[in-house]
Amino acid sequence: MLFAGGAVTVASAERDEAPRTPTSGSADAGFARDMAVHHQQAVEMSFIVRDRTKDEAVRRLAYDIANTQANQRGMMLGWLDLWGLPKFESGIEPMAWMGMPSESSDGAVMPGMATNAQLDALRRASGRDAEVLYLQLMTVHHKGGVHMAEGCVSRCVPGVERDLAQGMVDAQKSEILLMADMLKQRGAA
């Protein structure tokens, strides 16, 4: 019994100080908020194409993207809850934590995000047209996501958030290459 108590004392003494809680304007909080919104659109586009094509390769990719990004989105929203921070904060523009203007010239909320008109076009498309449009939109979407995740890698405090961001960079760059091949197979750029 004495040994077990000693082990707990040693383990307690070796712990780092309590983890810091990000502030609302921190890169960590900004990344969690903005990437949660970004991921939600990827999930939406993936469900749209799943219902608009019978192609198993595209449906499998869409399924993987939807599941991965829904899971990551849940983690990021959970972090905000854990930190006691709002999921949306009025007066703070998306991407402000990166020093970027939020709205792009095409009216998208954040870089890489599809516009409402593009989402409507995806909803109307079917078969090969839906596949190509999805792959094109998701490639641009992933490029915007990689840019944002790289911003967290360089600005977020080392830890779980930054590790997740680096994982996003690696995975989405790989999926961009896969989608380029899938577009080639469909005779599209």
Rank of each mutant, 00 (worst) to 15 (best):
S90G: 07
E89W: 00
A32T: 04
L137I: 00
D64A: 14
R20I: 11
N67C: 09
L137F: 02
M76K: 05
G25A: 07
N116K: 14
F31P: 06
H147M: 06
R186L: 13
Q41M: 14
Q69G: 08
R20F: 09
V43I: 12
K54D: 15
D81W: 13
H142T: 01
L77I: 05
A66T: 06
H39W: 09
P22K: 15
R15D: 08
G84F: 06
A29T: 10
A188L: 04
P86C: 11
R15T: 09
A32K: 00
V169K: 07
F31V: 03
F31N: 03
Y134D: 08
V109Y: 04
S154M: 10
D55M: 12
M95A: 08
Y134L: 07
Q172E: 06
F31R: 06
M110D: 06
L178N: 10
K87N: 12
V169Y: 02
H141N: 02
G74Y: 07
F3M: 12
A4Q: 13
A18H: 13
D170H: 11
E161N: 09
P19I: 03
A36E: 08
Q136F: 02
E131F: 01
D106L: 05
V132T: 13
R123F: 02
R60A: 14
S105H: 04
L2H: 13
R186S: 07
A108S: 15
M35V: 01
A57K: 15
E103W: 01
A4G: 11
S126K: 14
M113F: 07
P111A: 03
V109F: 06
R52E: 13
N67K: 11
T53K: 09
D55Q: 15
V109C: 02
G5I: 07
G6A: 14
P158S: 00
H142W: 01
E17A: 14
A189V: 03
D181C: 06
H39E: 10
D55H: 13
L178E: 14
G144P: 03
D51F: 02
M113V: 04
A7V: 10
E150V: 01
R20T: 15
A108M: 07
D181M: 06
A36Q: 09
G187H: 08
L137A: 04
E44H: 11
N116L: 10
T21M: 11
V146G: 01
D81M: 13
L177H: 04
A66L: 03
K54Q: 15
Q72F: 08
R15Y: 07
L85Q: 09
R15Q: 12
A42Y: 01
